[in-house]
Amino acid sequence: MLFLVCSCQAPRTESPLEPSPYGLLVLNNGNWGGNDASLCVYSTEDKTLAANVFEAANGRRPGDLGQDMIIVGDELYIAMNGSQLIYVCDRNYTVKDELRAYSNDIQLSPRCLLYARNRVYVTYYEGYLGEIDPDTHKMRLCAVGANPEGLCYAAGKIYVANSGGALSPDFNNTLSVVDPVEFKQVSSIEVNTNPVALCADSAGKWIYILSYGNYSNIRPMLQAYDIAAATLSDCPYNDVKSLAMGPDDVLYLACGFYDDLWQVSGSLYCHDASANKPLGTFGAENFTPYYSLSVDASSGEVYVGCSDYKTNGDVYVLDSEGKILYFFDCAGLNPQKVLKLYD
């Protein structure tokens, strides 16, 4: 059953619907330089969308490029890459704190967030990893490789994907291994060119590395790194665009291909992260134009964001079997991440 809710006619300054405590929280990335990142809440109970909940709560927009968000306890962390800050919001999306990081008087641009070891970790595109104490919101930094993107925690270490995305065509091809106690890089691992996303299995045996290659002769690749054996192997997928970890060590992958109109379409696959084995396709649907993938680690619901970068995106909600439950217009550009809200 499909539901289409469009709240796109609501002006930004108008109070949106009250966000539901049961629903889906969507972070819209927005356009580069457009200051149009936004948060919306889709109520799974009454099938309505509360648009621009951040602006409604704070009287101002979140800013430029909403890159990532995570919920830690009663707090929501939102990494704003373009606006170079991290918001810490309460359950009503009211800003409690704004975290800005500097190194040598240079303001840093947050990318991806991770919660591990009772700490919030954040990569900064200028080449740093940050560690935030959720109680005090105090932060410390350590240097990693160039233009870090995704990160994960496994076997007592933080792994950071150093993309070198701003060094094109000389992309980076390493993971930084950071000791979280000493909080410094202790080693690095060579992987395929331009690593951008990482996931680890629950046992801390495998790290899965998504790299985009050099957009030319080096192809995108999913690789599995055996931590104990310190070996790297290639996984049998083509043009992986996104990955997200679900419950029971199931790694969800979105692989891209072109449709008849040269639009990018995404099809989903599952991978057994604990055994490093493909589990086959997930559902029968292709998603066009594909943009992002999120998975709720508790329920196994899968959220696929679709966007053409010029109109409001759509979020498709799939059950754990891969069947589309419904979809909705997310009242913003480029749905970057979806989180399921629990009371």
Binding site: G33, G34, N35, R60, R61, G63, D64, M80, G82, S83, Q84, L85, E98, Q107
Partner: peptide, 10 residues
């Protein structure tokens, strides 16, 4: 000067 980015200007 580039576009005005909210909350930062570098």
């Amino acid at each position: 000067p580039g576009s005005v980015i909210l909350y930062t200007q570098h």
